[in-house]
């Protein structure tokens, strides 16, 4: 079983704070981490390998410091890492990202399963997985919360939906996007982390030329969507004490919740 895990390095948004005087994001001192859902993707791949054998490749697209995500993946027990890094990959939307990842998968060629995290905590789009599956013309199962059965030929997975779950089966190769409920992640081994920093570690660095892509197809240039402006939402406390009897106060509260689309 040859599995590819797609991982992303993201800023740890649980640590992000807003500067109270300027309203800007304070990015200083924010750690870069492997996206939480992607950790579950790695764990899923490890468990499948423990059951069926084979090997795991982790692919990460990002700036050169994203090498840490690859190293950590090797610390978990991933066999081989590939960092896709190039100036011209920067600023990619999900369209350009799925194309770049797709070319990397095509270059690897030999795979049975691709596992992605459901979504990344910086962008929260959940789009790259399905877009990659479409690029590769393989079936997808998203929101995977359980794997009922997996063989060299097919997979049966539980897909989380709003009202419960569906049990979906398909042949391989296929792409899964997984949610946190799927498994409990382990921690990387220190000895393997140390090995991953060695220059002989099984890590490759691929740029645009290695993928055989043109600069205008990737990154910002290869994107259809552009961010044109950003702002920081303010959550100033209103500090409003509602008045009247209980009935009145509850009514007033409900009105305010509705006005703010909270219920």
């Amino acid at each position: 079983m040859e599995t590819i895990v797609m991982i992303k390095q993201v800023p740890d948004t649980t640590e992000i704070r807003i500067d109270p005087s300027t309203g800007n994001l304070i990015r200083e001192g924010i750690e870069s981490i492997i996206n939480p859902d992607d950790r579950h993707a790695i764990e899923a791949a490890l468990q499948i390998k423990e059951k069926l054998g084979g090997s795991i490749i982790a692919i990460c697209m990002g700036p050169s410091q994203a090498i840490d995500a690859i190293s950590e993946a090797l610390g978990f027990g991933v066999d081989r890492g590939i960092l896709l890094t190039d100036k011209c990959f920067a600023g990619a939307d999900t369209w350009a990202t799925s194309f770049t990842l797709g070319r990397a998968v095509e270059k690897i060629n030999n795979y049975d399963l691709i596992i992605c995290g459901q979504q990344a905590i910086d962008g929260d789009t959940a789009q790259v997985g399905p877009q990659l599956a479409e690029y590769l013309h393989i079936p997808q199962i998203t929101y995977v919360k359980g794997i009922k059965e997996i063989t060299e030929k097919k997979i049966v997975a539980k897909r989380l939906v709003e009202s419960g779950y569906e049990i979906i089966g398909c042949g391989l190769p296929a792409l899964l996007t997984v949610v946190r409920e799927l498994n409990k992640t382990r921690f990387p081994r220190f000895d393997w982390l140390i090995d991953a920093c060695n220059k002989r570690a099984p890590i490759e660095i691929w740029n645009a030329a290695d993928l055989g892509v043109k600069a205008y197809q990737v990154g910002l240039q290869g994107s259809f969507t552009n961010v044109i402006s950003t702002y920081t939402p303010t959550f100033k406390r209103r500090g409003e004490i509602l008045e009247g009897d209980s009935q009145r106060m509850v009514e007033d509260l409900l009105t305010r919740l509705e006005e703010n689309h909270l219920v």
Partner: peptide, 22 residues
């Protein structure tokens, strides 16, 4: 050859482990 810095990497991973398990 691009590789992670050993000390920084083990520090980072130690922090995660400690925060969650210790």
């Amino acid at each position: 050859m691009l590789r992670s810095n050993v000390e920084e990497l083990i520090k980072k991973c130690a922090i995660r482990f400690v925060d969650s398990q210790i």
